[in-house]
Nucleic acid binder design. Structure first.
Length: 473
RNA sequence: GGCCCGUUCGUCUAGUUGGCCUAGGACGCUGCCCUCUCAAGGCAGAAAUCAGCGGUUCGAAUCCGCUACGGGCUACCA
């Protein structure tokens, strides 16, 4: 059996969005599972849409997701002569021809076709030019493109791994351009030449290419090359049901990294966009995905990316992380805070996080004193300032003699203090929470006090007491 | 207009060799439990007449046809 080799072939016109990432992931999973190779190719033959820096961004996105490629990427713009040579071969065999039609004539032709409600297609005028004459005009410096000479009749059948068998009438196919007048190939030519040269066995790409797949099959035939197998992937849509690829707001995968998402979660999320293992499992690691991936389980209908699910998945993966690993990842986003300082705090927040970034705010009070209690309910409902200051003082004197500073000794002391002053423990805890953290929503209070240490707790209690507004009822 | 593809809870999906589907799971949502706040976790629940119609069949989400709707392509873009 021939070796499996596939590839992700983005054009560097922007960053890597979720849809592109999914195409890359499916190629990667398939290649890894088949013990084959996964390649990267940069399709930069469109010099107009080309964006500087895009390739680096795409590569960084892929690396972040853990999709490593096995050979240095082919960059198409560096291979112009190779495509030209291939096109000339086609010219010689009659599978392609030179076209001298100007853009103006093409526009007029299409306008006419539209007016007559005919299919808009190249009318093949130049296909009738004798090759010698075409050669002469080319030699004389006339601008031309090279078009594929599609068979006038018959059918072409594609056996797609996802879409099944699709048959096209050759008569409905256009003589599309293979080589542009600037000497660059179009996608079609470059694709065939490169995939052949790279010995690609499986082409897994977006289903936008499905309509041109028969032309690609015909091209391979014209070259007398074996065609690869095809799998066309349905679109990934945004919440607005518009294809991600077409939206201006399509997010770069690296933005998910900035927002505190784990690459494991993003991978899991996009894997299930149009694919499922056929079981009820929904949290899979990359290794499990590799093992379970099957191209025939790919959905043939488009999928809408439901970001709420990504949030949930992210929380799941965060909870599965080893505590020191979680600390490491959180520290990356918290300049000035060491991994070691974070490790003891992890148990307090690990099961509360949905994104890494939430840890920053959740943990802030460990690293800086509350700056203000304005607007915070230091005084419980039904109590007044005097009672609150008194409660704070009672807690202070109850805990300051403590020689052992653990949850086990703190909790009973705090509860009995609440009882002594006649407050429900809930109320006392909230007052303490606000006093010590400056917040109403925090990790568990007593554990937090334990980690903060006695000195800092006592100090904050004093400051809070001083901040209680005496005019509050 | 032409050529293709698609259509199961709001969303991701299971279902693919027709009966085990009075359609299963997950996210989200609602309620309850747990509880020092918030989460997490546990339990329960609402939610798809399987796009519609017509066939085939003892029996169809699963097979066939038509219709509707959605989408892609229709560039010297990829």
């Amino acid at each position: 059996m021939p070796e499996v080799r596939d590839r992700y072939a983005p054009s560097p016109t922007g960053a890597l969005h979720l849809g592109g990432a999914r195409t890359a992931l499916f190629n990667y999973l398939f290649a890894r599972q088949q013990r084959g190779q996964f390649l990267l190719r940069i399709e930069d033959t469109d010099r107009v849409r080309f964006k500087e820096g895009s390739q680096a961004l795409i590569e960084e996105g892929l690396q972040w997701l853990g999709l490593s490629w096995d050979e240095p990427p082919i960059v198409q713009s560096t291979r112009k002569p190779i495509y030209q040579q291939a096109a000339e071969g086609l010219l010689a065999s009659g599978a392609a021809y030179r076209c001298f039609c100007t853009p103006e004539r093409l526009n007029e032709m299409r306008a006419d076709q539209r007016a007559r409600k005919e299919p808009e297609r190249y009318d093949r005028r130049c296909r009738a030019i004798p090759p010698e004459e075409a050669q002469r005009r080319a030699d004389a410096g006339e601008r031309f493109v090279i078009r594929q000479a599609i068979p006038l009749d018959g059918t072409t059948t594609l056996h797609d791994l996802v879409m099944g068998t699709v048959t096209f009438q050759n008569a409905s196919l256009d003589d599309h351009v293979l080589l542009k007048s600037d000497g660059y190939p179009t996608y079609h030519l470059a694709f065939a030449v490169d995939d052949h040269e790279s010995r690609i066995s499986h082409v897994i790409r977006g289903d936008g290419w499905l309509p041109s797949a028969p032309k690609h099959l015909l091209l391979f035939e014209a070259f007398h090359w074996d065609a690869p197998a095809f799998a066309h992937l349905p679109l990934v849509l945004g919440a607005d049901k518009k294809p991600l690829a077409k939206r201006h707001g399509a997010k770069d995968v690296l933005e998910y990294r900035e927002a505190g998402y784990l690459p494991e979660a993003v991978v899991n999320f996009i894997a299930f966009l149009g694919w499922s293992p056929g079981t009820t499992e929904d949290i899979l690691t990359m290794d499990q995905l590799i093992e379970q991936f099957r191209s025939d389980k790919i959905q043939s209908s488009p999928a809408i990316a439901n970001l709420e699910r990504l949030d949930w998945l992210n929380g799941q993966f965060i909870r599965r992380l080893a505590p020191d690993e979680l600390a490491r990842r959180i520290a990356e986003g918290m300049p000035g805070v060491s991994v070691d300082a974070l490790i003891p705090l992890i148990p307090l927040i690990q099961e509360r996080l949905r994104t890494l970034n939430e840890a920053h705010e959740m943990l802030q009070f460990f690293f800086e004193d509350p700056t203000s209690y304005a607007g915070k309910p230091l005084v419980p409902k039904g109590r007044d300032a005097v009672q609150t200051v008194d409660a704070l003082a009672r807690v202070r004197s109850a805990i300051s003699p403590l020689t052992e500073w653990t949850v086990g000794v703190l909790e009973p002391v705090l509860r009995s203090t609440a009882e002594q002053i006649g407050w429900p423990a809930k109320d006392l805890f909230m007052t303490l929470r606000v006093a010590i953290t400056g917040r109403t929503v925090t990790p568990p209070l007593i554990e937090s006090m334990g980690r903060l240490g006695k000195a800092r707790v006592l100090e904050r209690l004093t400051r809070a007491a001083a901040a209680v507004d005496p005019t509050s009822a």
